[in-house]
Design a protein around this nucleic acid. Structure first.
Lengths: 107, 107
DNA sequence: ACATATCATCGTAATATTGCAATATTAAAA
DNA sequence: TTTTAATATTGCAATATTACGATGATATGT
């Protein structure tokens, strides 16, 4: 087994889970925090800032890119990444909605 | 390897990642949605509602319990679960803060 | 006491994730 | 063109996650 049965759930449930999975690693949280607080695109080595190896950082960036949170392209030799703000706000709204729907419970 | 290097990150980053990891599976999202929308404690078999086996549901519930989102105890033979509302609002705030900190970027 | 229902735990198989060394690619600089 | 710097890809080892059958524990009902 070890295979998530996505077909058993709604698109929204799978979508939220997919986004959460990207946030489910402290390195990716750290990367997002760092990039989102910059005034400009980052064209620097996250490697030094985060402290993981270059291939590892590259892979984490790729995971973040997959859910559309990063915008950017090559600016000469270096990469130029920044947050895709529209997508960022979309995800913010997704989590907001998830957490908003709660009834008064007992216990 | 395969071992997350938690010591390299801040407590807040690790905490957010830990919470996100719980939300990173559609079954757990579905379970939380279901429980949070009930008027009362659930004393029923999530097994039928979600559609996974009883041991699997039990494990997922346990993951959710670990981050304090569930409150409940045995009520006779059956379990009585509901959302821990204080914790729920705490996590809501955690995500809200994470998504609120963003600067205007370029690109 | 015994059967039944409900939930937890154990063991195990399949798959996914994490991290890095080695290597490849890409584009500027010399 | 060759070198250099930055990022991506590949391959692999270690670990984690997902799922379920079998079994165990506990409480209710007969």
């Amino acid at each position: 087994m070890g295979l998530t049965k996505t077909h058993m759930f709604t698109d929204k449930q799978n979508e939220l889970a997919k986004i959460a999975k990207v946030l489910a690693h402290p390195a990716r949280v750290a990367i997002l925090e760092y990039i989102s607080r910059q005034d400009a695109c980052i064209c620097t080595d996250l490697v030094d800032i985060i402290g993981l190896s270059q291939p590892t950082i590259s892979q984490h960036l790729n995971e973040i890119k997959k859910i559309g949170l990063l915008k950017g392209n090559y600016e000469g030799k270096n990469l130029c990444y920044c947050i895709n703000q529209e997508r960022w706000e979309e995800l913010q709204q997704t989590f907001h909605l998830f957490f908003s729907n709660i009834n008064r419970n007992c216990c």
